[in-house]
Nucleic acid binder design. Structure first.
Lengths: 192, 192
DNA sequence: CGTCTCATGTAAGGAGTTACATGATTTA
DNA sequence: TAAATCATGTAACTCCTTACATGAGACG
C-alpha cells in the first residue's frame, strides 16, 4: 500500500497528472520510494475507482487531453490513517548479506568486485541524498516550497525537519553500508 | 533468484528434505533470508526439474516417504556462478523512511509510537544476530560445524570469517536504524 | 522535419504473502 | 491418546518488473 500512500502524499500539495507524478517520483519521492509509469497509471485509475482521487480531463494543446487527479476528502482521511498506523516489518531478505555469508565460494577477486560495487552504489545514493538535504536547506526544493505554501507557517519548521530527517536516515544507512563493505575488503586482504 | 541460491548454499553441506530446509531457514539463513514452506516446496520441485537438484524418495516410518534433495554438479556450478556475479541493486523503496518524510501528517503520539516500534524491531533483530555471532565464536552452530567438516581445514578461517562478517553487517545496520529512530524521538520532543 | 518531452497505456511474468488443506510419525 | 513435530502441498492475490506500444505537443 505504500505506492498509494506515496501518491496521496504528493497529491496533498496539489492536483497532478500521472506524468507529473511520474516526474516527482523520479526527482523527489523516488529517492525513497521508486515507482515506474507502468505502476503509476493503473494505480491512479484504481484509486479513483476507490474514491481516494477525483480525476478530471483537462485539454492539452489542440486535440489532446490529460487526466488531472485531485485527492478527495476520503483520500486525505486514508492517508492520515496510514500515517497513524504502525507498519508491518517484512521478514529479512537481503541478497547482499546472503551472498557475503558464502564468500568462500566466490573467487577473492569477484568478492572484492562486489564489495566495491556495494560501495559505489551507496556512494552514489549518498550524493543524491546529500543533494536533497542541500536543496531543503537552501529552499531550492520546488515540491517542498509548494507544500509549505499549503500549510500554516507554524507548521513550516516541522514539515522541513521531517524531510531532512528522512534523508539523514538514508545517509546514515548508506554510510554504514560503505563502512561494512570497506571492512569486507580489508578482511579479504587479510585472508589471502 | 536469491531463494534458489540460498537453498543451493544449504545443500552444499548435505542433502536435505524440504522440511529440513524449512527449519534451517527458520534457524540460520532465515536471519538474512526468510522463506516460508509455500515457497520452498515448489522451488525444490522446480530446481529438480532444472537439474540443479536431484531428489530421491526416502522411507519415513512405516508407510511414509519423504523426498531428500541433493545438489547436483550443475547446481554447484550455478551457485558458484551466482556467487561470482555482481547483484543488481533494486531501486529504493522504503516504507519507513517514506512515512518519516510526512510525519507532520501523523499525530506526534503516533509518530513516536512508530519510532519506538522501529527501535523495538531492530533491537530484537540485534539480539538474534548477536546470538548468531556468539554461536559462531563458540563453535555452537550445528550447520556451520557440518559445513566445516566438508571443507579442508585451510578454509575454516575464511568460512567462519564470512559468516561472522555477514552478521556484523546486519548488526551495524540495526544500530544505525536504532540511532536514527532515537534521533527522531528527540526531534519530535523538540518540535512539540 | 526531426527529436525531445508529455501523455498513457497493455501484457506477461516473477517473487512473495496469506490462507487453506492434509496426513503420518513421534513423544509425553 | 493427545499434542507436537514432520512432511507436503494448492490457490488466490498483491506487488513489482520488463518489455512492448502508441501518439500528441513543443521546440529548434
Amino acid at each position: 500500500m505504500s505506492l498509494r500512500n506515496a501518491i496521496l502524499a504528493l497529491l496533498t500539495v496539489e492536483p497532478m497528472t500521472g506524468y507529473d507524478l511520474l516526474k516527482h517520483f523520479e526527482a523527489s519521492v523516488g529517492h525513497v520510494w521508486h515507482a515506474p509509469d507502468s505502476q503509476i497509471y493503473p494505480a491512479l485509475r484504481a484509486m479513483e475507482k476507490d474514491g481516494l482521487l477525483e480525476g478530471t480531463d483537462v485539454t492539452w494543446g489542440q486535440r489532446g487531453t490529460k487526466r488531472r487527479y485531485a485527492i478527495t476528502e476520503a483520500g486525505r482521511t486514508a492517508f492520515r490513517e496510514w500515517m497513524d498506523t504502525p507498519l508491518d516489518y517484512p521478514r529479512d531478505r537481503d541478497p547482499v548479506h546472503l551472498k557475503a555469508a558464502y564468500f568462500e565460494w566466490a573467487t577473492p577477486d569477484a568478492a572484492a568486485l562486489q564489495l566495491r560495487a556495494h560501495i559505489a552504489h551507496y556512494t552514489g545514493r549518498l550524493e543524491q541524498w546529500r543533494e536533497k538535504i542541500r536543496e531543503i536547506e537552501t529552499g531550492g526544493s520546488d515540491m517542498l516550497n509548494r507544500r509549505l505554501a499549503t500549510v500554516p507557517s507554524s507548521q513550516h519548521e516541522r514539515t522541513i525537519a521531517f524531510k531532512r530527517y528522512t534523508y539523514e536516515g538514508m545517509i546514515a544507512r548508506a554510510e554504514a553500508e560503505i563502512a561494512w563493505a570497506r571492512h569486507g575488503l580489508a578482511l579479504l586482504d587479510e585472508l589471502e
